[in-house]
Write a protein that binds this DNA or RNA. Structure first.
Length: 429
RNA sequence: GUGAUUGUAGCUCAGUUGGUUAGAGCGCCAGGUUGUGGCCCUGGAGGCCGGGGGUUCGAGUCCCCUCAUUCACCCCA
């Protein structure tokens, strides 16, 4: 065991796994652009106030999970971003993008940081991909966002996910409902658990999705938000559901779904994976018209978005065996040296093969031929090209197909002709 | 932050009521084949038994502390 290890809640991604990330990222990039979203990259840290205002000072994320630091004694407090939406909205407002066009569709694949105790599917540094549609939040717009998210899952072949949706209502409706909830829970004050007592003051909606079994009974009798919604809110929600149904996207309505970030309003949603253990939310999102105003905008800016946890998606896909096709590639050819006497010649051949667009590997640690062959086999190259006295003398090389074990003797030009692949050629240009 | 769990070779793990030089499988390296892989056979390297303290004639094993891991609570992706 080495003296240093990766910091708690962080980990390394080695080549085999990196290939899986690239696969997912490729699908995200191509689908997002197919849906008309463009990539945005924002700073890893922001002023702490941004998250306090955006996510909500009473939320767990802001209250106890942020990595906050002072760059110097006189500087302003900074925080490693615990989510992306606040930073993206800040960027859009800062550049005044909405004056250039009414709608902006942005997506990202980014690392986030939360100071939680690590467990299955939860780390202190983690990644999300997500999209933000800023400038409209009509049912059509919200449905676009959800559809893109579900399309990514579908394209990757992920099975067995459950989409849950709810509406949280507009701000006035929520305010009235909030009062009703406080009225309802007040008599139970003595029975409520600690967390719920605190939420009663700050955000009573959150009591609803408490997973504490002791709370379930009390929660069951609570007034339902649905009864406080205006006709237009209901209509809005049902229109979203209509679009989902029309596209064959299955969902469950869950009236107790309340997201942990304060900025959500109206439609909120969450995707659950059964492969994940306790941390089973693989993605989520919703509408957040009021966020811009929190950041000083003179009016609401309609918007919605989603985020999906890359690590949780990885875990789900691994359990479903969705990476099998990725795991079997190696360089095309291994240049095998009879002994070190031919090292320089071999290096030159390897260089020429690579310039010709052929993925080539060669031994650099002076191992025996047998070891080189074993290595070629281990990394699954398709061919071995032998360099020895005979080859150097005649200019004809022994090329062995490692799959069929067939071996022929050819000029280097003929070898290149055989090994040349269109895809590999493009890489070199 | 709380609770539980597990720390022995690169990896997965054995290790008896405390008793000599701490083991296996896989992996790695080499040889069997002085120009040829996979399979097989043989050999080799590689361990402050997480760290510190204690009990004991004697600790990988028992006790305490500590660090780390994992899972769960909470919450979220």
């Amino acid at each position: 065991m080495s003296q240093y290890q990766a910091v708690k809640g962080t980990r390394d991604i080695f080549p085999e796994e990196a290939a899986r990330w690239k696969h997912i990222e490729g699908v995200v990039h191509s689908l997002a652009s197919m849906f008309g979203f463009s990539e945005i990259r924002t700073p890893v840290f922001e002023y702490t106030e941004l998250f306090q205002r955006g996510i909500g000072a009473t939320t767990d994320i802001v209250g106890k999970e942020m990595f906050t630091f002072l760059p110097d004694p006189t500087g302003r407090s900074l925080t490693l971003r615990p989510e992306m939406t606040a930073g993206v909205m800040r960027a859009v407002l800062q550049k005044n993008l909405l004056s250039m066009a009414p709608v902006h569709k942005l997506y990202y694949i980014s690392e986030l940081f939360r100071k939680e105790r690590p467990q299955a599917g939860r780390q202190r540094q983690f990644s999300q991909f997500g999209a933000e549609l800023i400038g409209v939040s009509t049912p059509a717009a919200v449905a676009e966002v959800i559809t893109l998210m579900m399309q990514v899952f579908e394209s990757l072949g992920v099975r067995g996910l459950k989409l849950r949706v709810n509406t949280l209502g507009g701000s006035e409706e929520r305010l009235r409902y909030r009062e009703a909830l406080q009225g309802y829970f007040a008599p139970f004050h003595a029975v409520l658990d600690e967390a719920s007592k605190e939420r009663l003051e700050k955000n009573p909606l959150r009591i609803l999705d408490s997973k504490n079994p002791d709370m379930q009974e009390i929660v069951a009798g609570a007034p339902r938000l649905y009864d406080y919604l205006t006709a237009s809110s209901v209509e809005d929600f049902e229109k979203v559901l209509f679009y989902l149904g029309d596209r064959g996207i299955g969902y469950d309505i869950d009236h107790r779904l309340v997201r942990g970030l304060d900025y959500y309003c109206n439609t909120a949603f969450e995707v659950i994976s059964s492969e994940l253990g306790a941390q089973d939310a693989i993605g989520g999102g919703g509408r957040y018209d009021g966020l811009a105003r929190e950041f000083g905008s003179s009016s609401d800016v309609p918007a919605s978005g989603f985020a999906v946890g890359m690590e949780r998606l990885l875990i789900t896909m691994e359990k479903q065996g969705l990476f099998a096709a990725l795991d079997s590639r190696g360089p095309l050819v291994y240049v095998i040296l009879q002994n070190q006497e031919f090292g320089d010649h071999g290096l030159q051949i390897a260089y020429r093969l690579r310039k010709a667009g052929i993925m080539t590997e060669i031994d650099l640690v002076a191992r025996s031929m047998k070891a080189q062959m074993r290595e070629a086999n281990r990394i699954r190259t398709s061919y071995a090209l032998f360099i020895g006295a005979t080859e150097v003398e005649t200019g004809l090389y022994a090329l062995k197909n490692l799959v069929t074990s067939e071996q022929t003797t050819l000029s280097l030009e003929a070898v290149i002709e055989i090994l040349r692949e269109p895809a590999a050629k493009e890489l070199m240009q």
